[in-house]
Simulated scan of single mutants.
Amino acid sequence: MTTTRTLTRRPALTRRAALAASAVTAALVLAACGNDDGGSAAGSGHAGHSASSSASADATAGAHNAQDVAFAQGMIPHHQQALEMARLAADRASSPQVVDLASRIEKAQDPEIRTMSGWLKAWGEDVPASGGATESSMPGMDHSAHSGMPGMMDGEDMEKLEKASGKAFDTMFLTMMIEHHEGAVEMATTQKSKGEYGPATAMADDIVTAQTAEITEMNKLLGKN
């Protein structure tokens, strides 16, 4: 059975990068180590200056602004919904390509939720919660609470997806996830232009790159290009 369903477009939102954030952090650590080594090589007279420079670099790396907080607090529930959608594919999708895509989305975005939650905790900011969980499954997620965010599905959308199966699910899942990804790209683009925290901006860059590629992939699966 095939279903053609046109989802109501909302302001055009999700994926990828705990690894990118880790890589940036590692690079900063290596850079700090490089400064220390340079100070030692130059002589003990520069050791204090090198340590001060490293401390200054660390402080700069940890600097963040309101946009960084908004990015993390918005992208966490956005990712949570993507995970909820992806987990439905395991026993509802008929296409192996859809199952594979959903698995990749889950593997990329679950670690990103953990990373962003860590940032917010370190900054003393509220971490979005859903069903009492932010880092694993999200039973009973309140979709209405974030339905105004770019690309977010409302409760009716999610209910229809949960009830679908086979080819009807595939079509609905891909259509909804394209919209969801477009919203994530929009949010990440704003972070890239207005954010201050390096790891958050790096994650945003990865989200734009990865999810734009997945949008192309999903359109192909729908036969649109």
Rank of each mutant, 00 (worst) to 15 (best):
T6W: 07
R9N: 09
A12M: 13
L13F: 11
R16F: 04
L19I: 08
A20D: 00
S22P: 03
V24E: 05
S40K: 12
S40Y: 11
A41K: 07
A42H: 12
G45Q: 02
A47K: 08
A51N: 07
S52H: 09
S54K: 07
A55R: 15
S56C: 06
A57V: 03
D58I: 10
G62M: 06
G62K: 04
A63M: 10
V69W: 11
F71A: 01
A72R: 02
M75I: 07
A82E: 03
A86D: 09
L88N: 04
D91R: 13
Q97L: 08
V98Y: 00
D100K: 11
L101S: 03
I105G: 00
I105V: 15
A108S: 14
L120R: 04
A122T: 14
P128V: 07
S130T: 06
S130C: 11
S130N: 04
A133V: 11
S137P: 01
G140S: 09
D142R: 09
H143D: 11
S144M: 07
M149V: 08
P150I: 10
P150G: 08
G151A: 06
M153T: 03
E156W: 01
G166K: 05
A168L: 09
A168I: 08
A168Q: 09
M172D: 03
T175P: 03
M176N: 02
M176A: 11
E179A: 14
E186A: 15
A188W: 00
T190F: 12
S193D: 13
G195E: 06
G198Y: 04
A204F: 09
D205C: 03
T209E: 06
Q211K: 08
T212A: 07
T212Q: 09
T216L: 02
T216M: 02
E217L: 15
M218F: 12
N219V: 02
K224P: 03
